[in-house]
Design a protein around this nucleic acid. Structure first.
Lengths: 339, 339
DNA sequence: CAACTTTTGGCAATCGCTTGCCGCCTGTTG
DNA sequence: CAACAGGCGGCAAGCGATTGCCAAAAGTTG
């Protein structure tokens, strides 16, 4: 069966090799290695010694096959190249490693069907899934959650534990900030229609604006990339706005570039507020006023919620919802409204 | 054995279920699904129909165990949060998916021992490894290459196929560019000592500078992060340089910030050239003149070289070395030397 | 139509590890 | 000293696929 491994390499040691050398049964080796307190200390030490001498590495395949656990957690993000997810990925990577899991990163390409398909395939080969900014419908999401342990990030569901970033909270701050600069109306450069947080942000803006007598206009949808920034910038200019809040920093940075191209000064002619405080928001020109949140921590929290779900005993009370705090980071892209 | 899966979920279908429904043996199902031309068309269609009705998903675990192939390729990068690797990751992700492989992303934390340890563990559970900017010694690297299919990126080895980015080539361009602006000496803000490309870049600079009668000074080592930029900037100022080439853009961007803090104007007081042309290099302030290369493509090429290694028959001539072209992207961070 | 080659599908042995169940050997207890 | 409880280790049955080997069926050929 096992064909000669491409890269030569002598056969890797198995628990059987260890068992033979130690003069015990394979079951004892297995237990010594993955259930230490189940075997006598002397036996265990001997087995451990032999195992390390042989450079033994357990086969995750075999282990998974017989135990039903894979030790793998998948992290699904809509777009690997979006720096926002970098921070999430970093957080999950870190925390998963600490919990002894391996991270499987998948880019779902902002596509619902890729996401759905991936989820289905992963059901077999992972112990759980972290779903960042899912593009699924509520129905699809709850189906998925019923089939496999799941935690969502930036997407609320009743069925699965969720980590939310309290952007709406900070939106209020952003509006106050803008109002204090004399802005009376604000434009929202919207993100993808299928994005749940896009709706959420717009709702928050609309509501907060109404509450303080400002007017709010929604533009878009725009793809959440720097490239789409040009279109968003032009539309914003067309709307005659003095202040704009962008769906995310990527879009905002793109808009910044377009404004510069067109000779529109920021913040003198127009103020712009981003969202996420990604890598780059602090050194673009001008540095972006944005809604900042502990994204990396969100990733870590999501992992711990998933761990709790996987092991309800040790995991303690499985929290169903975590909301990460946000705050407005004021930099140089916002200023007084022009008269 | 198989304990009740945490998230309820009825047992997943296996080839056995399909075999029963189709009235054939499991071996036939297996063949129909993974070796289609081996079974009669009618039988195959029937099996495929049943499989899809059952929402059958093969167990990668079981498949891997018996076939010896896992369908997983690991990608090791020193630091997930470095945008340079984003592009590589994106390239590998894309190409691996196209080749039917799953990408396992691992952050080795710029640490040799983590890298070594990961490599060892991965030997069992992956079909091959893509090693970006390895921190291993030549010896360790050749050991690793002899044990598992491997392709290195940005690190030359005799033992494994390699994808190199021709930074030295562009360094010459950078020096010419600087010389044309009247710069007579240049400082190199160096990267990590264990980085092979760091040595390579310095050598190229030293040599190219000598050839055109410029003087070159090396500073550092600095961690390849924006944070270390401050120290690098101060040292550069201390060295009285008029032009500096940074190990990478991250460092360069950090230096930009520090220069601004200290009231040093770029490029009037000092010119700075980065390396990699990462996300952000085009919109920082001022936009960074940098050495640009098709990083994402490097990732794709690396994957195809690995594929060729895994399947020498279909793979064609296994190229041992690919060099990605580079060019100097001139933006606003370089200008005439101050008199 | 016999002899022979292909196709096609089944049998059963793995792959490496986990785990339920059982029995032996101690040490403890009444 | 008999009875019993635990600790410790072994047996063997899987987990879900793949695949070498073989035989039956179907197709070819002279």
């Amino acid at each position: 069966m096992n064909p000669e491994t491409p890269s030569s390499a002598e056969r890797m040691p198995t628990i059987r090799d260890i068992a033979e050398l130690a003069g015990v049964a394979t079951s004892t080796v297995s237990r010594a290695l993955s259930n230490p307190q189940r075997v006598n200390a002397r036996t265990r030490e001997k087995i451990e010694r032999i195992a390390s001498e042989l450079h033994y590495v357990p086969s995750t395949q075999a282990r998974g096959l017989s135990s039903g656990r894979t030790g793998v957690i998948a992290v699904l993000v809509p777009d690997i190249t979006n720096p926002f997810y970098f921070d999430i990925i970093r957080g999950t990577q870190y925390q998963l490693k600490a919990s002894g899991y391996t991270q499987l990163l998948v880019d779902t390409e902002e596509a619902t069907d890729v996401e759905l398909d991936t989820l289905r395939k992963l059901r077999r080969s992972t112990d759980g899934v972290l779903l960042a900014a899912s593009r699924l419908t509520d129905q699809q999401l709850s189906d998925a959650a019923s089939r496999q342990p799941l935690v969502t990030i930036n997407r609320a569901t009743a069925e699965a534990p969720t980590v939310l970033i309290d952007t709406p909270g900070a939106v209020v701050q952003a509006l106050e900030h803008l109002a204090s600069f004399g802005h009376r109306s604000v434009v929202y450069a919207g993100g993808p229609t299928s994005s749940w947080s896009n709706h959420r942000r717009w709702k928050a803006i609309e509501e907060a604006a109404a509450k303080r007598g400002m007017s709010a206009t929604r533009l878009g949808p725009y793809a959440p990339t720097a490239l789409s920034g040009a279109a968003a910038a032009d539309a914003t200019l067309g709307a005659g706005a003095t202040a704009v809040i962008a769906f995310n920093d990527l879009l905002a940075i793109g808009m910044l570039g377009r404004f510069r191209e067109r000779g529109v000064r920021v913040p003198e002619d127009i103020s712009i507020v981003g969202c996420d405080d990604i890598f780059g928001a602090d050194f673009c020109n001008p540095p972006l006023t944005t809604i900042s949140s502990p994204i990396e921590q969100a990733g870590r929290v999501a992992v711990s919620m998933l761990m709790a779900q996987l092991d309800p005993i040790r995991g303690g009370t499985p929290r169903k919802l975590a909301v990460m705090p946000t705050h407005l980071k004021i930099r140089a892209s916002t200023g007084p409204a022009r008269a």
